[in-house]
């Protein structure tokens, strides 16, 4: 037996002429407390209007103060009483009153979305009934509540914040662009300088060549040209041979790489990822992989935080990579 005293709401309930009415009153006050942009006096007047036919014989003040204190135990007690003693018609009328109190001026606050649905579940009223009731009372369909835990909600309700963010992002982007443009300009200037130098060199070479040409006789020049052609052909053939040789060497190297055994270091590391000592057999590897995959599978952490899921998937990926590598080479 508990030694706790009777709470204010329990005392009210015991004194009340009709327990259901008192309990419904508290639930309605709970709805009213979560309505925004309403003064305290307006709340009390509205509650008195809606519950004019109730047969409780006590003041509304204590009920409002209990609802303001968000006393969960009192609300739970009220919900139990209402569920126990409400007939079908009575529960419909209670929900009707809750909807009128929640949406006098049209807008349903986010908290009241959830409270109304809780009351509907408590009074055993189907979603279709609730939505038709809501439509009849307010002339608007009951839409699902907006979600303030998402970015999209705040884009709609606080566009200033997003505008500020976008401006900052733009400024950062512009700065990056400017820096990039400056770097490009510098590069361009450098390349231009180099080109100019090259042009100068070429011009000088041409001048020299012209001078030599003028000095030499035509016949001599033809001969020189012939010799030059021959020389070039020889150089070309030599270059081709060299290329062929290099390619062959490359091919040989690749062949050697693929045929030679993989480095022992990577194998031991992969084995260590699977929790095995070097020298484990192929079946050991397979068994260890199965065990580790079951232990670290991301789906196991689905019910916990997204952060843990991400960590688990990173671990699982590492284990799988090690297993794939060992199966290919081991």
């Amino acid at each position: 037996m508990s030694i706790a005293r009777f709470s204010p709401f329990e005392l009210l309930l015991l004194k009340s002429r009709s327990q259901v009415d008192t309990a419904t009153l508290l639930l309605l006050a709970w709805v009213l407390v979560h309505r925004q942009h309403v003064s305290e006096g307006q709340r009390r007047r509205r509650l008195a209007q809606v519950t004019a036919q109730f047969r409780h014989g006590h003041e509304l003040g204590p009920i409002m103060s209990i609802a303001h204190s968000q006393d969960l135990q009192a609300i739970q007690l009220a919900a139990e009483v209402v569920r126990k003693e409400c007939s079908n018609e009575r529960s419909l009328s209670a929900l009707y009153q809750a909807i009128t109190l929640a949406t006098d001026d049209g807008d349903l606050s986010l908290a009241n979305h959830y409270i109304l649905r809780f009351l509907a579940d408590l009074l055993n009223i189907a979603p279709s009934t609730l939505s038709t009731l809501f439509q009849e009372l307010t002339g608007k369909p009951l839409c699902p509540p907006e979600d303030p835990s998402r970015d999209a909600y705040w884009q709609q309700h606080d566009p200033e914040y997003h505008a500020r963010q976008a401006q900052e992002a733009q400024a950062a982007e512009q700065q990056a662009k400017e820096a990039h443009a400056r770097a490009e300009q510098r590069q361009r200037a450098q390349t231009e300088k180099q080109q100019k130098k090259q042009q100068k060199q070429q011009q000088e070479q041409q001048r020299q060549q012209e001078a030599t040409r003028n000095a030499k006789a035509r016949a001599q020049r033809e001969q020189a040209q012939r010799e030059h052609d021959q020389h070039e052909q020889a150089r070309r053939t030599r270059w081709q041979q060299e290329q062929a040789r290099q390619e062959e060497a490359r091919r040989r190297q690749q062949h050697q790489r693929s045929s030679s055994p993989p480095p022992a270091d990577r194998t031991t590391r992969a084995l260590a990822v699977l929790g095995l000592a070097p020298g484990a057999s192929r079946t050991d590897v397979r068994q260890a992989y199965r065990r580790m995959a079951q232990l670290h599978h991301p789906d196991r952490f689905y019910s916990e935080s997204d952060h843990l899921v991400a960590l688990a998937s990173a671990r699982f990926q590492r284990i799988k990579n090690a297993y794939d590598y060992l199966m290919q080479t081991y």
Binding site: R117, F118, D121
Partner: peptide, 13 residues
């Protein structure tokens, strides 16, 4: 409240 009242599998939840 829903956990206490056994309403964790309600149609509206």
């Amino acid at each position: 409240l829903r956990a206490r009242l056994g309403l964790t599998h309600g149609a509206h939840w």
